[in-house]
């Protein structure tokens, strides 16, 4: 049973919530605990726009256990407008549509097959930008 694990991550997975440094303004994703020597609350929650461009991608033909229902699927790293890189699945696109540098935007989709505990795991993916 991993219900608590998925519940804990809801802000990150559903809202793409990262963190902003209160002094420098630097934005990071995902949220992380403060480092040694940092003020405990120096990183504040910061929802991200979900817009960015494709840094790199791959199309998997041998999925790991728990992802069989997706068949062949694309994954990518996205450079968000706010700066951080995010790794996620790419959706609503054919392999030949993908190119490094193309604009993409976040959508919420099912991330994995439904496991033995029956939990539907939702989270962010990216699709080609609609602008």
């Amino acid at each position: 049973m991993e219900i608590a694990r998925h519940w804990r991550a809801r802000a990150t997975r559903y809202r793409l919530e990262g963190q902003r440094h209160r002094h420098s303004g630097v934005v990071r994703f995902p949220p992380q605990p403060p480092a040694l020597g940092e003020e405990p609350d120096v990183w504040e929650p910061a929802p991200l726009s979900g817009r960015g461009e494709l840094y790199s991608f791959s199309v998997l033909r041998q999925p790991p256990a728990g992802y069989e229902s997706f068949g062949i699927y694309a994954v990518g790293m996205v450079r968000l407008e706010e700066g951080p890189l995010v790794t996620a699945q790419l959706t609503d696109c054919a392999e030949e549509d993908l190119a490094i540098g193309m604009p993409v935007e976040m959508v919420t989709r099912r991330l994995a097959d439904t496991g033995e505990d029956g939990v539907l795991v939702y989270g962010y993916k990216f699709r080609p930008g609609l602008r």
Binding site: S56, P63, Y67, L111
Partner: peptide
């Protein structure tokens, strides 16, 4: 596990993305 494996990424896929970026 949370930001990569959960999204269906394998180590092979990670190296593949580095290869594509390197080629670019």
């Amino acid at each position: 596990a949370e930001t990569e494996a959960l999204h269906g990424l394998t180590l092979t896929a990670q190296w593949a993305m580095l290869m594509r970026r390197y080629m670019h």
